[in-house]
Design a protein around this nucleic acid. Sequence first.
DNA 1: ACCTGAACACCGTTCAAGT
DNA 2: ACCTGAACACCGTTCAAGT
Lengths: 220, 220
Amino acid sequence: MVRREPLNREKVLTAALALAGEEGLEGLSMRRLAKALGVEAMSLYNHVANKSDILDGIANRVLAEVRPADPALPWAERIRVTALGMYQALRRHPVVPLSLATDQANPATTQALRPLDDLVGALYEAGFDDAGVRQALGGVSGLVFGSILLSTAGFARPPAPGDVEHHEQWDEYARRIDPDELPHFNRLVTGNRDADPEEDFVRALDILIAGLIASTPSRT
Amino acid sequence: MVRREPLNREKVLTAALALAGEEGLEGLSMRRLAKALGVEAMSLYNHVANKSDILDGIANRVLAEVRPADPALPWAERIRVTALGMYQALRRHPVVPLSLATDQANPATTQALRPLDDLVGALYEAGFDDAGVRQALGGVSGLVFGSILLSTAGFARPPAPGDVEHHEQWDEYARRIDPDELPHFNRLVTGNRDADPEEDFVRALDILIAGLIASTPSRT
DNA sequence: ACCTGAACACCGTTCAAGT
DNA sequence: ACCTGAACACCGTTCAAGT
């Protein structure tokens, strides 16, 4: 119970990541975070500027986990590896895509932008011009973030295996859907029990990359 | 100032959509919404169950705006039209993708799911099996939502033309980026001024659809 | 049937005061 | 240098009371 060392920024961020992992973004409040650290809420402001600073710090840490792809790989493979690395890191910590999407975090650091730099480098190497790179980057990053955000939320996505909450939600969909009004969706929902979100993401990513290869300007 | 007719659900939803359009999701509070309607916050509960009910109603209305694609069109074209329709409707009302991503809305109505049903129908027609449809649907819907959420937020996306806020943010990126550490990203940021988010989305969508066509099981 | 005021349990953040 | 208590301006929602 006795605190020898004082708090510091890193400890705050670690506790924030843990709390967000348990309670989600809406459960991550300055007051609850302080309580988890055995301190009053106002003490946190000695180590971070405000809540956005915490979310920036978290996003930064998580994006820094993404291992850079081997530069010797062909560009399409580098995109695959980097996008998957982003997906995995962000999916381990869904607070991050959520706080980025809601504009509560905005980590403009080298570490955080490194994975994007890798994607951009691969796309330039593929032969796209500035506009093409911007569009293709929007496609890849949009797919990564959209897949995570939709699979974290309940809308329009199959459940993860063992994820009871999502499973129930999917079942409720199946119950509420009028098969006459939504015949195809009904077929999909009844025919799809356990699915692995990451496997589904990789499949969608491979489809996008196949399209990128087909759109490469330099191909004959 | 004198209110003749009493409030009703539709009026509440209309006002909520307008308020969210002006102030964003974080500006849409029960108290502010009530004030905009010239009423006390607690009156709203006579017409909607709670805030989630409002967000469901909003999402429902906006998704119902998506016009169904002509069933006579080839499957790839139907996907293109429907996905673009979703993008346009959701982009006019960014509260909707935001409240879906944060799980505050969950509209499981026929109207809201109709566009997804169209996508699923087109994918079955293309020849995908259940898993393939689920994966391809995840790709298309992930791209739609991710593109909107990233373009609405400031992270990793070029600014819309005339969108001062984003423009400034992009400029700040350009200022803060270390060209030696993020050479490719730096090249992209300095070489990209005005871009149209919708045009970029369509381009990314076409790339994904090209990949879908190439992945179709029934092709020779 | 519809609206309201007071209240409860929360937020992020500031500021003056403590050690 | 770090922590705290009280306060301010907010939230969503409940409940009893008004018309």
